[in-house]
Design a protein around this nucleic acid. Structure first.
Lengths: 339, 339
DNA sequence: CTGAAAGCGCTAACAT
DNA sequence: ATGTTAGCGCTTTCAG
């Protein structure tokens, strides 16, 4: 391993001088700086982050909280995987490396905060908190800069899709196309993971403004985001309300499951029942009919989240949360009842 | 931050004694050990990995090489995302944390090896080398333990699907169902990323053993793994060989694209043309007809890779590479021509 | 402009 | 069984 001492020996300068030259800190003459940098390059010097972290108390490590609770597919999530990808690039550009945080590191029971301290992370991004939201409230109070890209956790600024607005857009689209009977298939939601709830709220608000009928019996909650639950949800909805024509689903998988139920009982999509989904999953343009849906702006969410974290890392006060509007993608799963 | 010195002060023992007690190294009396551990717990001591790494020369960090060259979707890859997920759990159980490696960290040009040294990683897992395979040959020679889960890189043990065998299985399945005219749609391949080539080799071997006609004109190479290239590949194949009935594709996306081409010119799937894909992507059971395909054992690949890395980390010699057979999933995209 | 001294938190190698 | 000394590689005072 080549250290600054090797450079010191080779150039005749002292270790601190080398350090200053390499970091551009001390007031060194341009000449010696160049000499030092040249030698460093020549002998292949690479700073040792562990040593640097020890003295500076800055690890240049960002902890990622990414729980695998989506289809046990982890990284294949249509939103989270993309966010992580872009976020990673944004942070790496400024010298930060990403490290996964877990509650089970080192074969033991621990907390995310424990892991943060263990690795001395400079900041944390919560991509998907899973069941751990409660715990993260504690993390938020720990002085460690945090940002969240999905869950809404007290004390942590978030960057999340404009779900309410998207819900409104879905209802408006249905109404514009002459629909009058609406229903909603909801994925799992709770106090911290509010996407599905927010979409419903927006959806309902427009329906009510237009004085159409809508109450809780038109909402089918699902225990998962999987297709099969969409199938069941649709069955339940259809058995109590056979006149529904406009289905909004909190994600595309549930929508496809629901479409399958319709087909299974001889209902045509979109002729008898129309659908709007969410997420623009890989299959959504392949399925029959191609699904009208919303695409969340993963790159933008990640970029804004990275910016917020960078600001906090630079000592700025906690940023405001931000909402990013989703793109509406119109395909062929909504029938125009006006014609 | 609470350090071993805080424990030392509180218990009256010296720092090294604390260290020994906590790590179970030195010959301490059970009584003092317990006392020390209790106090450590009480005041919330967490070891500082940077400091430990500095003295022990072991970071407990595993570098991940994961290039985003699949649909720019990064983590959403049907194989890689799942591998990463399981691999992560396996390593975390033994105290290792995963860190992403990149060639552009710190806003500069660098190599993966640079990044490894920078962070002093104990080992590396190559999940997807992208265009960097050449460079990894250098990494392999660096004494840093490596393992690869997709690419075949000289000097690095790999854990990869039995692609040749799967290719054979595909051909056998077609032949069993009475097919006589075969073609193959190939995704990108090169010297290091051999999946597509291996599948083709296996496919061809059975066709030839059965004395059916097959040459390079029945192979359509695609520049990407995307659906649109499958569409084009099928067009090209069909225009020169209109009698093909058995299509094998190196992934499901390409297969679906090819199926779409068939439908676009009025050919029925599977009645006129049958298909076998690879990967069992999310949409493969949804599409029309549901696609017969292969599912790679992501968890098993990850587990074996983790085991190989653990062995190397423990000082054992470089392991042999291993092949994991894929699961054949029969759905409805292959027509039985015998009936 | 440069260097000497000191210390970050921890552990290895010796003493005692 | 426990403590002393020293040092990992780096940076931060502070002197010169």
């Amino acid at each position: 391993m080549v250290t600054i001492y090797d450079i010191a020996k080779k150039t005749g300068y002292s270790a601190p001088t080398i350090s200053k030259a390499l970091n551009g800190t001390g007031g060194l003459s341009a000449a010696t700086r160049k000499k030092i940098i040249d030698v460093a390059e020549e002998i292949g010097y690479k700073p040792n982050m562990a040593a640097r972290a020890l003295t500076t108390k800055k690890s240049f490590l960002i902890g990622i909280i990414y729980e695998d609770n989506y289809m046990k597919a982890g990284f294949e999530h249509p939103l989270f995987g993309g966010i992580l990808n872009t976020f990673r690039t944004e942070m790496e550009n400024s010298g930060y490396d990403l490290i996964f945080l877990s509650k089970t590191f080192g074969s033991g029971k621990a907390s995310y905060l424990d892991h943060c301290i263990h690795r001395d992370v400079d900041g944390v991004v919560v991509i998907n908190s899973g069941e751990a939201a409660e715990e993260l409230i504690g993390l938020a109070q720990s002085e460690i800069p945090c940002v969240s890209t999905n869950d809404i956790i007290p004390g942590i600024p978030y960057v999340v899709t404009e779900n309410f607005e998207a819900g409104r857009k879905a209802a408006e689209h249905f109404i514009k196309n002459g629909h009058k009977k609406f229903a909603y298939i909801s994925g799992p939601a709770n106090e911290y993971t509010r996407a599905s709830t927010e979409r419903l709220e927006g959806f309902k608000s427009v329906i009510r403004e237009n004085h159409f009928d809508f109450d809780d019996s038109y909402v089918a909650p699902c225990p998962s985001w999987f297709r099969d639950d969409g199938f069941e949800a649709m069955r339940q909805l259809y058995e109590s309300h056979a006149d529904i024509t406009a289905m909004f689903s909190s994600n595309d998988s549930l929508a496809v499951g629901a479409m399958n139920y319709c087909k299974s009982i001889g209902l045509a999509v979109p002729d008898d029942v129309s659908f709007i989904g969410f997420d623009d999953e890989m299959f959504s343009s392949y399925c029959t009919p191609p699904l009208t849906t919303f695409k969340q702006k993963r790159e933008e969410i990640a970029e804004v989240a990275a910016e917020i974290l960078h600001n906090r890392l630079a000592g700025l006060p906690v940023s405001d949360s931000v909402r990013i509007s989703a793109n509406f993608i119109e395909r062929s799963s909504v029938k125009n009842l006006n014609i």
